[in-house]
């Protein structure tokens, strides 16, 4: 069980402050979503938490240790990160691709051990891509690729999972599946931070939301506190319908203001 603590976290990229004084905690056991309009700093937050961007001020601590100070190998086994954009440069088989998630555990000359093979099988099964194992990943549909790349991140079996926009390119069925899976991982004790554009999914599955606007944290709390009509109008510039469907609170953006 690992807790992420951001304290007054600021990140400057190319001379511009992209993330400005964010203080928030991501505990294990509950799915935490990051929402906000394009360019609000969501991906930058995810990358900073993953240790990919040095803070210009403030800190990211993983169980009290500064993420930049954790040795690369330890960090790789602690934090699994799935970048947005479905990056896959070579036509690898699905099984080979998912096996890349075991790299943090392999020493220089070692082959995949049975324990690694089992982790790969679990990841394939969890992401529902076991039947694609022998397919060439670059030849899959966008939705299939998204799930295969997610399986790669799952194969790390790290206590922390950071996922940047996993729902792009997924049909509604697989969106629900992926969100339920992330929620299940969090409930199982993982620390899961997911960047989302779909406010309905954020409302439906996240236990807590961090809302960013122009690099600042403007709201932090349960979805019903964060995704209010007033705040969606102020931050996204949209009029949203907020109501109850099937006994669940539901948020649907309706029109630009």
């Amino acid at each position: 069980m690992v807790t992420i603590a951001m304290t007054d976290l600021s990140v400057r990229l190319a001379g511009r402050t992209v993330l400005d004084g964010v203080t928030a905690t991501v505990p294990p056991g509950a799915l935490v979503g990051v929402v906000g309009p394009n360019g609000a700093g969501k991906s930058t937050l995810a990358r900073a938490v993953a240790g990919l961007l040095p803070p210009s001020a403030g800190s990211v601590r993983i169980d009290g240790r500064d993420v930049g100070a954790v040795p690369a190998g330890d960090r790789a086994r602690t934090i699994a990160y799935l970048p947005q954009g479905q990056i896959l440069e070579w036509p690898l088989s699905v099984a080979r691709l998912v096996a890349l998630g075991r790299l943090p555990y392999l020493t220089a000359a070692a082959r995949i051990a049975p324990a690694d093979a089992q982790a790969i099988e679990r990841a394939l099964a969890t992401a529902d891509v076991a039947d694609l194992r022998d397919r060439v990943a670059t030849e899959l549909s966008g939705g299939e690729r998204a799930r295969v790349l997610l399986a790669r991140a799952l194969a790390v079996e790290a206590p922390v999972l950071i996922v940047d926009e996993p729902l792009a390119a997924l049909d509604p069925g697989h969106q629900l599946h992926v969100m339920a899976m992330l929620e299940g991982l969090a409930r199982g004790g993982a620390t899961v931070l997911v960047v989302l554009h779909d406010l309905g999914m954020a409302q439906r599955f996240c236990a807590r939301l961090l809302m960013l606007d122009a690099g600042r944290l403007v709201a932090d709390g349960p979805p019903e506190m964060v995704l209010t009509a007033e705040r969606l109008a102020a931050v996204y510039g949209v009029r949203a319908w907020v109501g109850v469907v099937d006994g669940r609170r539901t948020v649907v953006p309706v029109a630009r203001i």
């Binding site: 990919l52 790789a76 699994a80 970048p83 990056i87």
Partner: peptide, 20 residues
């Protein structure tokens, strides 16, 4: 060689897999 494999997933993902 291993690091080259990890780069199949892009630089960010490779770094989070422990590649220096």
């Amino acid at each position: 060689g291993r690091a080259l494999d990890a780069l199949s997933l892009g630089e960010d993902a490779a770094r989070t897999l422990g590649v220096d």
